[in-house]
Amino acid sequence: MKAAENKRAISVGIFVLIGIVILVTGIMVLGGKQKRFVKSIRVNAIFNNVGGLQSGANVWFSGVKVGTVRRIQFYGNSQVEVTMNIEEDVQQYIRKDAQAALSTDGLIGNKIVEIVGGSTNSPVVEDGDILHTKAALNTEEIMTTLQANNNNLLRVTTDAKKILDEVLKGKGVAGAVLRDSTMATRFKNTMANLQAASNSAAQVTRSLSSASGSLNQFASQLNAKGTLAHDLVSDTTIVRDLRASTARLKDVSNTAVEATTNVRRATEKLNSNNNAIGSLLNDEVVNNDLKSTIHNLETSSQKLDENMEALQHNFLFRGFFRRRAKEQAKQKSATAATAPTDTSVRK
């Protein structure tokens, strides 16, 4: 009997010891996950709606778990205050201007608190600080948005199906192009014309490029010292001379215009019968009278010569003409006698 009782006591003791080990191990594991045995600070955040957040939820910072939610309680009229335990080891990385936002562990996972932001210019967070909160979309809003997008996508696919059915039936321009060979031929011709226009545009572009090269070459010539183009652009003396020459050419042109105008006026007067020269040139009556007058003058001169010849032979005037002839002969002989003397003097 004693041996059986001792054996039973030993078995119970072993099972109790195993239970105690399992209990301690569970407590250590759970405590490690809940950060119960790690030194921490308390940080608060006030939300308008926690969306089902529970105590013991994880707190994340930059994708790393840094603490847990310790307590959730109402604050003020309708807000909720969330108290979080944050490890002291990561306290130096969280700043006072950081923000706390509600998020989910995955798409439809448990609610968590995520600490985001914070600048290096701000001091580190301390025990009892209250972080600013950042509004985030909850699951219901996300699902509502997804439902609206699904409805829009359904309408788009339905409209696209209708359009494809009409196109396959040959309705509209697209259906005509697909089913009508004439339209297809015209479309091909249009594309060929567009290709030709594109080639022409490319040629124009190349021409413009060559023209740009020519302009660059001309500009380089303008910048080259000693060339006429550079002197015309930079030398003020040449420009001043060109301006003076242009002014003189303008004066000559004005003078030529005035001369042309005067010649035209003189020609008009010569062609007119209102003046003597015009009458002489254009009026036949005046020409005939002038010819008659000249003929009469010639006749009168001839008769005058005959009369003078007759007077020379008349005995009344014969002595006068002889004396005159002698005087003329003396003058000629005197002139002939003085001619050699003048020549010797000149020598």
Rank of each mutant, 00 (worst) to 15 (best):
G67R: 10
R324G: 09
K2M: 05
G63A: 04
L228A: 13
T157R: 13
T293S: 11
G170R: 01
T227Q: 10
R206E: 15
N48D: 15
S253Y: 05
Q54T: 10
V116F: 08
L146T: 07
N287A: 11
D251N: 14
R95Y: 13
N282R: 15
D231P: 00
N275E: 12
Q312K: 15
Q54Y: 05
A211I: 11
F315R: 12
L304A: 15
S220F: 02
H295C: 00
A4N: 12
T190D: 07
L290Y: 11
K134D: 00
S253K: 07
K171V: 09
R318C: 04
N151P: 00
N189Q: 10
K39A: 13
L311A: 13
R243T: 07
Q221T: 07
K169G: 14
T182C: 10
N273L: 05
N296Y: 02
N49H: 11
S245K: 06
A266E: 06
R186S: 12
T255I: 05
G67F: 11
D235R: 14
Q203S: 10
I22R: 05
K347F: 05
R42C: 03
Q331S: 06
S11T: 14
I41H: 08
E141L: 10
F74T: 03
S207Q: 14
S55I: 01
F317M: 09
G32M: 06
F37G: 03
L290P: 00
K171D: 14
G172S: 08
G51Y: 09
I20A: 15
S122G: 02
L23T: 13
S279C: 08
N110K: 10
R264P: 00
V263N: 12
L270Y: 03
D342V: 08
N254R: 09
A192E: 08
G319C: 00
Q34D: 03
T261I: 04
A192Q: 11
Q54M: 08
K169N: 13
S212V: 03
Q302I: 02
Q195W: 12
V90D: 07
Q328T: 08
V82F: 01
V156H: 05
A98D: 09
L304W: 04
A339Y: 11
R240M: 01
N150V: 06
N149G: 07
R324K: 14
D235N: 15
R155G: 01
N6H: 10
R70E: 04
A211T: 05
K269G: 05
G170C: 03
T139A: 09
E309D: 13
K225W: 01
M28V: 07
L232W: 04
V59A: 07
S333W: 14
I41G: 06
L102S: 02
I86R: 01
F321R: 06
V59W: 05
M28T: 08
Y93N: 04
V64Q: 12
I46A: 02
V345R: 13
V204E: 03
Q221V: 07
S198Y: 14
S209C: 01
T260A: 09
